[in-house]
Amino acid sequence: MKTISQPTVSTKIMSLEWGRIIALIAIITIHAKPFSTTPLFNGEPWLSLVLNQAGRFAVPLFFLLAGYFIAPKLISAPLQTLKRYSLPLLKVWFFWSIIYLLAPYNLTLLLEQGYLAEREGYWQFLLSTPLNTLFEGGLVHLWYVPALICATAIIAVLNQYQKVALLLPIAIILYMYGLAAGSYQPIFGLEAPIFTRNGPFFSCLLVAIGFEIRRVNWRCKFNIAMLMAVLGMAMHFTEARYLLHYDMPFNTHDFLIGTPIWAVGLFMMLLKKPNFGGKRTVIRNSILHTSKDVLGVYLIHLLIIIYVFNIATMLSIESIWLDIMIVPLVFFLSLLITRGIERTPLRHLLLR
């Protein structure tokens, strides 16, 4: 088995820390859906739709980062690393799932008809697809955690039995199946037992590429990486536009053929500029302090979005102001709550 050909990273790579934060903001934008009612172009909120797809590099970038940073430990102690890595993630996923199962989402309905009336419909929805719920959790965005664990498990097992050469072929097959039974389902007609964004179908390829980039020290010139990112993004948008012909909404695609190329290009660009944003001590410290809270903000942000929209509706706040303010407002509120949790005993349950 090949070993890592470069020294273990002992200091923070500033460009990658920036990448975490930018990716997190992109995910908040996807979930907050700003400008979904105005402006309209030919009767469609194309600004909102484009913003939605423009953020689709974010989760793939997180997967790449995870694979890159866990690679040394997976190589030296595969199964032990899998256990140490997965159990804290499963704990966090479980307790946040409980929170999202119990927390009411429609405050108006809660006030008018009571707690059980508000929750019962959601619980029934989750029970109607139990297998998918198992790979997702209490709310849709929690799918990331089981997907990451699935990908890590595959890499760990292949490393344990010295079959790492099979990693990328297996990951590519899973990805192709995920596409054929997901965004390309109207063309190929394949059915999957779960929504293929969940589980290992897409996560395995991205985590595996991050792992391989670290294991064999893959590098390329900045201009080539930038070309890769632009090409991948252009492919992703072209595919999303093409799939409109098959009645697939433009803003529903998490992963397409071009998405990994886009994300890998961005990742390689970040690797070529490791000191990006780290020259000024104040900015550097601020980014490092914020990047450590990325998982906490990710876990809580969707509940904050739900409540902000609930309160905005109650207060009749104009949508244009909410569209402008929603992303920074949710980011900073989620960050403050995450840091508040860090100061309480709940940090052992809700934060990794």
Rank of each mutant, 00 (worst) to 15 (best):
V157C: 04
A312D: 12
E212M: 10
S97Q: 05
K83N: 14
I154N: 00
R119V: 11
G55A: 02
Y85C: 05
L243C: 07
F255D: 08
F41V: 12
D323N: 05
G43R: 10
F276M: 13
L256W: 01
K163G: 06
V282Y: 11
W93M: 05
I324T: 08
I30F: 13
L79D: 03
L351W: 04
W262P: 01
I209E: 02
G340W: 12
V294W: 09
F255M: 11
I21W: 03
R352V: 08
L79E: 05
I213Y: 08
I25L: 14
S319N: 06
I4Q: 07
L256R: 00
P60A: 00
R280M: 14
I172C: 04
L206C: 01
I326R: 05
L346D: 06
Y184P: 01
N159M: 13
D293S: 10
Y68L: 12
S286A: 05
K163A: 08
I30T: 08
F276D: 07
V50F: 10
S48W: 14
N132Q: 13
T37A: 10
M268T: 04
G19R: 01
H253M: 14
F276V: 07
L295M: 15
L167P: 15
V264Y: 03
I326A: 03
A171D: 03
H253D: 13
I13G: 00
Y100W: 09
L49I: 10
L79W: 10
L315V: 11
G19N: 00
N217E: 14
I224S: 04
I21C: 02
R84E: 15
P260K: 01
Y105W: 14
V230E: 06
R119M: 14
I4V: 08
I317V: 14
L244E: 15
R280L: 15
M1H: 04
P104C: 05
L61H: 02
A103I: 15
F125V: 11
G296P: 12
T129W: 10
E112W: 03
P88C: 00
V59F: 08
N217D: 15
N275I: 04
P45L: 12
T29Y: 09
L16I: 11
L333C: 15
P200G: 03
R284K: 08
I194N: 02
V230T: 13
G340Y: 09
Q160F: 10
L179R: 05
P186Y: 11
L110H: 02
K33N: 13
R284I: 04
T238C: 12
S291E: 09
S319L: 07
G43Q: 13
F267Y: 13
A312Y: 10
